[in-house]
Amino acid sequence: MTQQEKLELIIKTLDSKKGEDIQAIRIADLTILADYFVIVNGNSNTHARTLADEVEYQLSQRGIEPERRESDTGNTWIILDYADIIVHVFYKETRSFYKLEGLWADGEQVDITNLIEP
């Protein structure tokens, strides 16, 4: 699976589970952490956990496992680290608090409108 196919699968999976305000930011020129961040929020802690679980499940069905999964005890933030793509799943209020998009504002916003349902 190519990086682009993996990115598209992650975005489509989050969208299929009603992830809110999905954003993909290309950060390859800014850091060695990853090539892309995908940021999404759920409308509850349970929804956030479901989003992360579904991404992990869909990629594992294709033989891709995260190098690391981190979360807080309340599932207000969950990180799936796939080395080249890091998925940040937040509870809505937690996302507002951390403002990750602002921290990586120098990154390139990826147009994902063709991957999500209107």
Rank of each mutant, 00 (worst) to 15 (best):
V110Q: 06
D15S: 08
R62G: 04
R49K: 15
V87Y: 03
G19L: 02
Y91I: 08
D81Y: 10
Y57L: 13
I25T: 01
A24H: 01
R95A: 01
I86T: 11
F37V: 04
F90G: 02
Y91T: 00
N114L: 11
N45F: 10
D21F: 00
G63V: 01
G102R: 12
G107E: 02
R95P: 03
F97H: 08
E20Q: 12
I27G: 08
L103A: 04
E67L: 14
A83C: 12
I78S: 08
G74Y: 11
E70G: 12
G102I: 01
T31N: 10
E20S: 11
I86L: 13
I27N: 06
I22M: 05
V55T: 08
I116P: 06
A52E: 09
M1T: 07
G42T: 04
D21R: 00
I112S: 04
G74A: 13
D106E: 15
D81G: 10
R68N: 13
E20W: 04
D84N: 14
E101M: 03
I27M: 04
Y36K: 05
T94D: 00
W104E: 01
L33W: 05
Q23F: 10
K92A: 11
T94C: 00
V87N: 09
A48G: 03
H88W: 13
T31E: 08
N45W: 04
S71H: 15
W104I: 02
R95M: 03
A24K: 00
K92N: 10
W77G: 08
R26E: 15
S96H: 14
V110S: 05
L80F: 12
I27C: 09
T94E: 06
H88K: 10
P118C: 11
T50E: 12
I112K: 06
I11F: 06
F37H: 03
E54M: 14
K92W: 03
I10T: 07
P66D: 06
I64T: 02
I25L: 07
K6H: 06
E56W: 04
G74E: 15
A24V: 04
T46F: 08
H88S: 13
E108G: 00
L30G: 04
E5Y: 02
S71A: 15
S44L: 12
I64K: 01
A105D: 09
G42L: 07
D15C: 08
E70F: 12
Q3N: 12
T113V: 09
D106T: 02
K18F: 11
K17V: 07
F90C: 01
A105H: 13
T73Y: 03
V38G: 07
E5R: 11
V55K: 08
A48N: 06
R26A: 13
R68E: 12
D72Q: 03
E108L: 08
D53P: 05
P118K: 14
V110H: 05
T73G: 09
E67R: 12
Q61F: 00
A28P: 09
I79R: 02
Q61G: 02
T113Y: 00
M1E: 05
I86Q: 09
A105R: 14
Y98M: 00
D81W: 10
T113W: 01
V89R: 10
L100P: 02
P118T: 12
S96P: 00
T46Q: 11
D81L: 07
A34T: 13
V55H: 06
A83I: 15
V89K: 11
D21L: 00
K99S: 13
I39P: 01
I10G: 01
D111N: 14
F37S: 01
W77E: 05
T94I: 03
T13Y: 01
